[in-house]
Design a protein around this nucleic acid. Sequence first.
DNA 1: CAATTCAGCATTGTCGACACAGCTTGCATG
DNA 2: CATGCAAGCTGTGTCGACAATGCTGAATTG
Lengths: 246, 246
Amino acid sequence: MSDSQPQGNETLPPEARTLAERVFQQLQDAIVRGELPAGTRITEPGLAQAYGISRGPLREAMRRLEVHRLIEREPHVGARVVRLSMRELLELFDVRESLESMAARLAARNMTTEEVESLRSVLGAHENQAGLDQGEAYYQREGDLDFHYLIARGSHNRMLMNMLCDDLYYLVRLYRTQYSARGARPQRAFVEHHRIVDAIAAGDEELAEMLMRRHITAARQTVAERYAMALDDGDGRAPISRRRMS
Amino acid sequence: MSDSQPQGNETLPPEARTLAERVFQQLQDAIVRGELPAGTRITEPGLAQAYGISRGPLREAMRRLEVHRLIEREPHVGARVVRLSMRELLELFDVRESLESMAARLAARNMTTEEVESLRSVLGAHENQAGLDQGEAYYQREGDLDFHYLIARGSHNRMLMNMLCDDLYYLVRLYRTQYSARGARPQRAFVEHHRIVDAIAAGDEELAEMLMRRHITAARQTVAERYAMALDDGDGRAPISRRRMS
DNA sequence: CAATTCAGCATTGTCGACACAGCTTGCATG
DNA sequence: CATGCAAGCTGTGTCGACAATGCTGAATTG
């Protein structure tokens, strides 16, 4: 896997920027990977000592995490890693449906042939991977997001791209670790991905938009049905698997 | 107990508790109002002294402004109030179209009768206001956003609501001050607003979504045509690049 | 024995100060 | 006279310390 790390920011100064920036990305990664489980209480002195920095940059990093909805803060009380409830997860799907269908429409309008080609190559790589151990599709977890990343970038809408890549997709990854959700229905997703790419390549905006909308709606449906019996509390908390990352 | 009137010290300001929060809101307001014009260079000691606080809380407020896309920061260089280019403005319209059409759909599904009623009352107030001095519709500038705010809230989708109310609508207000855009086509907008409310009241999700989409598309079209002769670069490059102040 | 109050502590909020980077300016030199 | 270089200055990045607030726990009292 080349980069499951999204290039959310615009330019490419990969190495040294500011300290707060690096800590922010490290924390972001640690959260979506599950190294910091949901509900973990984050104390500023603790993390500052853990990362070997002062509280100043760490506070700024936490501010950014808060705006990105990865941690929840309460004034004078503290911060905790977000615990995605089922309701918020379904809300996320609705927002994704709206944003990504627009991204698909714009991608069909603005994507260059090279971008379409790279999209096809990524899709082919995942297909081969899925052909090896079909059914499990472990790699599909990140591969699926690679696909959506490319379409978001292909929209050539910087604002839309930032919203999807910098905000929503981190929440998606967070959900997948918190619910330990393996990518369900891999073959169906593959077919849908192919059709979306075909529509984009053909420049059919309406079709691309509709297919993407159905794609995400179907995923939402699957998730909703899957957890329908497990948790029947519309507003309640999510039953997180309290497995530690060892 | 003490139900009558508690001490006026802290009634219920959920976010006015910390100093950084207040400064953030003050700065946010100052920017969208135009008191801090676009491109204004923001220096931390200057603003800190202006607001009578230290640099710590001000830095956190600036971080939040940065994430909300109201200021642009460059490491070791400084921060400036964003200058919305025409391209970014059109991008904003695309994002709004996608998000608000979904909000209208969800509002048609989830809005209570009380919410619909308040929506209608707001619309009626604006209509009377526009009846007084029709054509100018000064109030319509904020009134239009009131309308969209209520629909966003009516979606009962917290994530969608936060995205619209906390991020996009501030950018919309910022654009209106920067471009000194008076609300064009007021009567048409009124008609469209009424139809949207009717669709929402009727619970017609598809219709509400489509009408909202057309509503925003028409506004985008108007803006695009209006500035077509002033800056004519389609959607390739940003016509108003970030120029140096000097 | 239970409820309440108060003292102690941990953590967050805020502040002032130091270090480093980038820009400006003045001088020296070709 | 133009240009390169160096020194100063402005401003950001980072740090440690102090103050304020909320939580915890035990002791006391009805």
